[in-house]
Each structure stands twice: as C-alpha cells, then as structure tokens.
Amino acid sequence: MRTGLFYILNLLLLLHYEVFGQSCCSGGTPLIGNIGMQHLEKNEWYFRIGYDFNYINDLVSEDEVLEDDTRTRITQSLLWQSSYGITDRIGITVLLSYINEQQNTFIANGVDNRVSQSGLGDGFLLAQFSVPMSVKQELIVVSGLKIPFGKTNARGEDGILLPPDLQPGSGSRDFINGFSYKYFQIFGIPQFDLNATGGVRFSGKSSRFEGDVDYRFGNEFVSAVGLIKGFLLRKTTLTSVIQLSYRFTQADISEGFELPSTGGHWVNINPGLNLNPAANLDITIGSEIPVYRNLVGTQLTTSYRLNLGVSYRLKSSN
C-alpha cells in the first residue's frame, strides 16, 4: 500500500514540473487514454485491437459552445496493443496506431470541401509494474515513451503541406507516466468495483512545417474515476462502466511563445460496456460525452467519441 501511495504521490508531484507534452497527438486521437492497462502474469500475452471514432464539431469559446457548422473534423484510429508479462509484476506494452483524418468545411456555394489523410500514427513503448497490494486492490503503474512513427509532412491533393493537426503523426517524442487503480467489491458487493486511472505526458521538442517552426505541444494530464458493475448474462459476463474523466492540457509553445487557442480543461462522462464471451476474450464498447469544457480562446473540439475494442489474453506455457 505504501508503495502504491508513493507512486501516486510521485505522479502528482510530476504535474508541477514545467515540462511539456502534447494536447492532441496523432491527429486528435487521445492515445494516452487508449492504453489498456492490464495486470499481466509471467509469460502472459495481452493483445488488443481498438477502433476510435472522434467527432470534432463543437466550437467552444472558453466555456461557451458557439452555434456553428462551418467546419467538422473526424479522426478515426485503429490501435494495436501488445503486452507481455516478463514477470508476475513487470510487463511491457507496445501500442501502434493507424490514423485517418478528415476535415470538412461547408463553403459558401453549398459544396462540402473535404480534406483527408491516412497513415501510420505515433506509438507507445511502455513498461508496467504491478504494485503489490491486498487482494481487494490492484495498482499498475506504467512509464515509457511515445515514439513519433507517424509522418508529419503529408500533403493535400493540391501538393500543399497539410496543417499539423491533419498530419497522422506529431513528430514529438513524449515521456509518459500513468497508473490504473482498482478496488474490488466495494461495500462488499460482488462484481462492483471502483476504478481510477491517471496519466501525464511530457513532450519533447517538435517542429511544424517541415522544420520551419520550433514547436512543443502543451503538457497533457488525464484522469478518470469510475464504477464497474458486472452481471452474469447466461454464460457470459456483461460489465457496465461509468467514468467521470478530466483532461487538462497546457498551451502549445510555438517559437517560444504560447500558441493562441490551445490548451484547456475538459470534463467528460465515459459510459461503456464490456462483454466477456470467453475466458480470454473481451469485447469493449465505450464512449465519451463532454459535460464541461473551459478552453483557452476558441477551439474546435470533440463533440463525442466512440470506441470499440477486442482483446485476447494468451498464457504462454514456458
């Protein structure tokens, strides 16, 4: 328990440091929120394939939603996660992404103008540690790097370099810390668990416009707290999840100056379902619904997100 507290405190302390992360890597896919942190036993594999649909259509000025339909962005991501337990406590995770970005503007003559771009996005390489806890609790901490696999010099049909937020990659190497905490059977109720997650991302230097502009994405902090309730549905277990999540990003820094209209606070509700049709197989469906935003300046931001995941556990015999 003490070790667990140490890690949580360590994580919170890190938030006070003036280091940088990024608000929106790989074209609007919040990768940090897509890491499935799972306890792994020795020689156990965990694979997860996920799909994330991010519909970005809310124009928000500080905390006010402006009625506007001039521009919409949709980010669709395929995420592949492979995790392996080296020991009963230590594991590694690799997460890769493939991104499709689409931006629609409704131009004056009524025509819908669409720009889209697809490609390999950024990835994660993470080490995880399961902190020794009592049987009713589980704490996993992860630490690692975001690696900028995704390209940042994609061009549109007219041959013009696309803007950074339509590039599949961010070009930024980030340092990631995160944790996942579970308290099983709260109030002694079977299959009724408390879940809390948190993560911070500190990014390194990046650049925009093929190196023409020095750039750093703002730090990102995400956290969520939720309740998980499982039900037996014939021979399968159906688990419902409801989470309240909070995300904060600092303003991006361009050429040493804060970039206008970047950074802010987001509070979302994340309902989801988890189906467990076989012992090693999980199917998850999740969503994100904004409940409060307080953003710097005016930003086009997420209206809702949907995600779907299928995961499989495999215990290697040796």
Binding site: T70, R71, N113, I160, D165, L166
Partner: peptide, 12 residues
C-alpha cells in the same frame, strides 16, 4: 505556401 489549418472557407 502553407495551409493555416481551418481549410477552404474554414474561416467564413
């Protein structure tokens, strides 16, 4: 020539 971000008529 660079794209500023909002796209054609993204700034109406």
């Amino acid at each position: 020539v660079v794209s500023g971000g909002p796209g054609i008529d993204g700034i109406p």
